[in-house]
Design a binder for these strands. Structure first.
Lengths: 134, 134
DNA sequence: CTGCATCCTGGAAGATACTG
DNA sequence: CAGTATCTTCCAGGATGCAG
């Protein structure tokens, strides 16, 4: 055991319960896998402040290919995180917006982002030290 | 804009600042990428309650290959999240434990796990509905 | 027990071209 | 503008065998 704070201990306990499930039935594994794909969370955060259109997303995430943009948006839509609204104008416009479910993940992902921005210098330091030792 | 709560709005604002950075310089992207690999967070959570040895980890995460276990542990060690301690016994024993940095990520990841366990039924529903519509 | 070395494959992702 | 279709590349990850 370590000395961990109460919040961490609670999460660890929940995790241990979840981790005991058969692999296919562990909902956490499934969600972590989804989050873990290269673009999903990036798009969720890019849509976090306002709904956006297809090419607007391409501009704001310049290093995503249009194929992966389409594909990731479809997956997010299928998972109920993003809603797709077509405007029947000429030329057609398509707007993507977070659903309430999609919005609800902003906070937990936000904590991770917060952790990242606070601790990435430590990670960088650790890497330099590790590589120097090797 | 959506109507989002204050916490979410704060995280969105921070994200937008981070997202403005050149891609290589965005610390958040880097950390999301690390988290996004298949096994890192799984191992962190498995080590969250107590230090463990190599084959103990194999048993607790039965579907990880030994190659990926070694590889992921090395990466976590390099990033300063995990410490590796060798006991000079016969046969040799090696113990892996979370560093303070590694422990500090339990809480933000925990929020995500919490979100996952609460919302995975909604995601499942959404998928069924989406597939039925198609 | 704790690994490293090698080989190999599936699927993720990129590039390019075309369309309503 | 918002996609689809196809081809190709690339590498994470699995399988297996060996070693200190």
């Amino acid at each position: 055991m370590y000395a961990v704070d109460a919040t961490a201990a609670l999460f660890v306990q929940r995790w241990n319960e979840a981790a005991g499930l058969p692999l296919g039935d562990c909902p956490v594994r499934g969600v972590l896998d989804r989050i873990s794909d290269k673009w999903s969370m990036l798009l969720v955060m890019t849509l976090a402040d306002a709904p956006k259109r297809f090419n607007q997303l391409r501009r704001e995430v310049p290093d995503i290919s249009q194929k992966m943009l389409t594909q990731t948006l479809r997956t997010l839509q299928r998972d109920g995180m993003v809603a797709r609204q077509v405007f029947d104008t000429k030329p057609p416009a398509v707007e993507y917006r977070l659903t309430p479910l999609g919005q609800s993940i902003i906070v937990p992902v936000g904590y991770l982002i917060d952790w990242a921005s606070k601790n990435h210098p430590r990670i960088d330091q650790a890497r330099v030290a590790f590589d120097a030792a090797a």
